[in-house]
């Protein structure tokens, strides 16, 4: 029973952490690579506004980073904590 719970805990942690880590690393490095290789794309304006894709993507990233931390805390409290309490 104990080993089963422990294995479940490790698997669950992986299921939660890997996708979130993947989202963060991909979205951040795509930002960095856009800056390095396609700065002109980032300078284009969205429709007729004066806000560039770069600024919009930057603000989106700030929001996304915060969202990922919230999702992680929520899932951990909901799914991980009950198992940790059991073992």
């Amino acid at each position: 029973m104990f080993m089963k719970d422990y294995e479940k805990l490790i698997n669950l942690k992986k299921i939660i952490i890997y996708p979130l880590l993947f989202i963060i690393i991909c979205s951040y490095f795509s930002f960095i690579l856009l800056i390095a290789y396609y700065p002109n794309w980032l300078s284009q304006k969205i429709f007729d506004s004066s806000i560039s894709y770069g600024i919009a993507y930057g603000f989106f990233l700030i929001f996304l980073i915060f969202l990922v931390t919230l999702v992680y805390v929520y899932l951990s409290n909901k799914l991980i904590e009950p198992i940790v309490k059991r073992i």
């Binding site: 952490i17 979130l20 880590l21 963060i24 951040y28 930002f31 800056i35 980032l42 560039s52 770069g54 600024i55 930057g58 990233l61 700030i62 980073i65 990922v68 931390t69 992680y72 805390v73």
Partner: peptide, 21 residues
């Protein structure tokens, strides 16, 4: 302008890393 945003996002993106691992 925009260059300031590159720095701030870099400083911020360290946090999910700290949290997750």
């Amino acid at each position: 302008g925009f260059d300031g945003l590159i720095y701030s996002i870099g400083f911020l993106v360290g946090w999910p890393i700290v949290l997750l691992i």
